[in-house]
Design a binder for these strands. Structure first.
Length: 421
RNA sequence: GGAGAGAUGGCUGAGUGGUUGAAAGCACCGGUCUUGAAAACCGGCAAAGGGGCAACUCUUUCCUGGGUUCGAAUCCCAGUCUCUCCGCCA
């Protein structure tokens, strides 16, 4: 959510910067609506002052007049609220403004590679995809998921299930013990205001799974990422300056409808309705965001370094960034079967964009309440990391060598072999 | 599912119709004292929004929305949320 004052004073700059984003909200009327809103507020307040004066004077002769004023105020207020609502609905649907160093571009083709780490090993056999490997091992079962649930779900079985769990534990250990994050095991359902806070609502409702609790309770949604629930920890709160930065990590299932991507990545477990992800969230003073983004990205890449997986870091262009982000690095891991780098983490600074939606603030050294800075990043997507390990560590016979970093988490096994039948 | 209690500033917590935006305490900020710190003492300290270059000023806000009244934190109605007890349950 943007600060209307900023927009008022910097409209041309604002408009130009928003035009670089994939923005579908019309912003042309924004200044007029704002003006109208403020004019109505003034009129209303003038009347309110009159009424207040009468009440204070206790002059019975004026009591009738006061009643009349009340009616006028009521009318004006109704109209003003309608205008305000219109203004809010526009404001809450406009994406964040990119920072200066974000490359301008329209889609993923305009993202820029920043660095490439690790050597791509050329094997003397044709590498299989993770789903071929998994099905052959009888440890990834898509058909079974179709039977019990539907498409875009998967059963992970046996040693691969163990590996999935190991990855999650390994990542959590690195982030809590080495990177200074506090582990959280959060609710997997989020309320409507929580979803609004991080920007999933109102614009992206179609991507979310809504859950009906039997009371006529408020709306609830399955979290599409732990970012939602972790960031909202500071919702409606004035955080103590001495408590910042706050750093949280959680490993949770994530649920997405992926409405926009039917037909994309239909094979395998790249794009599922449900997947595990280890998520990092930082709440910082608002001038610390960009430094924290570097720190967070390093925390995420450290996992890939330890697993010895080849990856590259890219900066997303203005058109490809998420709604709430002001700057985003994607980390892409090498997948031999596709001969491509695929996204395995996305680390974003949101500046005070989410904090304004959540009303999350801290008192700065001048004792003023200011909005916090929020950041989120995957550290890492567990399902995709599993895929990356399988494909990069596969052997000719279809077995999978276990990365050394994971062995302590997998009973010191060094290889996954087909289940004996 | 049944019964009850509650929602007031960063926090704790007074306050049942007329300058109460709201006592008190804690926290925080400034000062006195001190070599320094602590303690003690003095002073300050809610937010959001509107107008103004500014000093400043106005409006709103005691969970939300209605209602009564010239006037509501305070009275009435509806709702939301939280907590406790019982039942059910991993």
């Amino acid at each position: 959510m943007h600060d209307i004052k900023y927009i008022r004073e910097n409209y041309d700059v604002f408009k130009k910067k928003i035009s670089n984003r994939n923005n579908t909200t019309k912003i042309d009327d924004i200044l007029n609506i704002d003006k109208k809103n403020r004019k109505l507020i003034q009129e209303k307040e003038t009347l309110e002052k009159q009424k207040k004066d009468i009440s204070k004077s206790k002059d019975e002769a004026m009591f009738q007049k006061s009643k009349e004023i009340s009616l006028k105020i009521k009318e004006l207020t109704e109209y003003q609220l309608k205008v305000k609502k219109e203004l809010d609905s526009i404001l809450s649907s406009v994406p964040n403004i990119p920072t200066e160093d974000v490359p301008v571009g329209s889609d993923e083709k305009d993202n820029k590679v920043i660095e490439t780490i690790g050597d791509i090993e050329s094997k003397n056999f044709k590498e299989k995809s993770h789903y071929e490997l998994g099905e052959k091992l009888d440890m990834l079962d898509f058909d079974l998921a179709t039977k019990t649930t539907g498409s875009r779900f998967v059963f992970v079985k046996d040693k691969l299930a163990l590996m999935e769990r190991a990855l999650s534990n390994f990542m959590l250990d690195v982030h809590t013990l080495e990177n200074g994050y506090n582990e959280i095991s959060p609710p997997l359902l989020a309320s409507e205001t929580t979803m609004f806070g991080t920007g999933q609502l109102p614009k992206f409702e179609n991507d979310q799974f809504e859950i009906k609790l039997d009371k006529n309770d408020g709306r609830k949604f399955l979290i599409p990422t732990a970012e939602v629930i972790l960031t909202n920890i500071v919702k409606n709160q004035i955080v103590k300056l001495s408590d910042l930065p706050l750093r949280f990590v959680a490993s949770t299932p994530c649920f997405r409808k992926e409405a926009g991507s039917y037909g994309k990545d239909t094979k395998g477990m790249i794009r599922q309705h449900q997947f595990y992800k280890v998520e990092l969230v930082s709440i910082v003073e608002n001038d610390q965001c960009l430094g924290e983004l570097e720190r967070m990205t390093k925390s995420a890449t450290k996992i890939l370094d330890r697993l010895k997986l080849p990856y590259r870091k890219i900066i997303l262009c203005t058109g490809d960034m998420g709604f709430s982000a002001e700057k985003t690095y994607d980390i892409e891991v090498w997948l031999p079967s596709e001969k491509k780098y695929r996204e395995i983490s996305s680390c974003s600074s949101c500046g005070s964009f989410q904090a304004r939606r959540m009303n999350s603030r801290y008192k700065n050294t001048n004792n003023e309440n200011v909005f916090t800075g929020t950041l989120n990043g995957s550290g890492l997507a567990v399902g995709r990391t599993l895929i990356a390990v399988m494909e990069n560590y596969q052997n000719k016979d279809g077995s999978i060598t276990i990365p050394e970093a994971l062995r302590p988490y997998m009973n010191n096994m060094d290889k996954i072999l087909p289940i004996k039948s």
